[in-house]
């Protein structure tokens, strides 16, 4: 959705680790390499961090670090507590989940989404409407 708004043709497969040199997002390959190195604890993290800082500057690099940090915590809380995906989000993400085979992820068992009907994106508030 945001890639459409930004006028980008994004290869969502890059988020799932599919080999690609160009996700369609500026500097996407470098940012993914950096995120992967942090998550895996790779030995070349320092080199990749230097590359990000040199090419994007310390502010954007810090922004990438903050993003990786936030989601490193959120995924652990979500999966360990087994919270289901929010109803509104489940409805608008049907096509994306199918395209990326997200229901093969380990955490998918916590959310029963096979019966969820497709809906168009309406508003941010609607995504998290669990009523």
């Amino acid at each position: 959705m945001t890639s459409d708004a930004a006028g980008l043709d994004v290869d969502l497969g890059a988020t799932m680790g599919r080999a690609t040199d160009d996700s369609g997002v500026p500097h996407g390959r470098m940012l993914i390499d950096f995120a992967e190195a942090v998550v895996r604890g790779d030995d070349d993290l320092a080199r990749l961090r230097t590359e990000v800082v040199d090419r994007l500057g310390p502010d954007r690099a810090g922004h990438a670090v903050a993003t990786i940090t936030a989601f490193s915590g959120l995924v652990r809380v979500a999966d360990a507590t087994g919270i289901p995906i929010d109803d509104g989000l489940a409805s608008v993400s049907v096509d994306t989940r199918q395209e990326l085979a997200l229901e093969q992820l380990g955490g998918a068992a916590n959310s029963r989404v096979d019966h969820v009907e497709r809906a168009e994106f309406g508003s941010i508030d609607a995504l998290f409407d669990n009523s």
Partner: peptide, 21 residues
């Protein structure tokens, strides 16, 4: 970072951690 760049990073971290949420 642009919003697509942030979402790319966030999605990759989530996927590597096998997080569906």
């Amino acid at each position: 970072l642009s919003r697509p760049q942030v979402e790319l990073v966030a999605s990759r971290v989530s996927a590597m951690n096998e997080c569906f949420y």
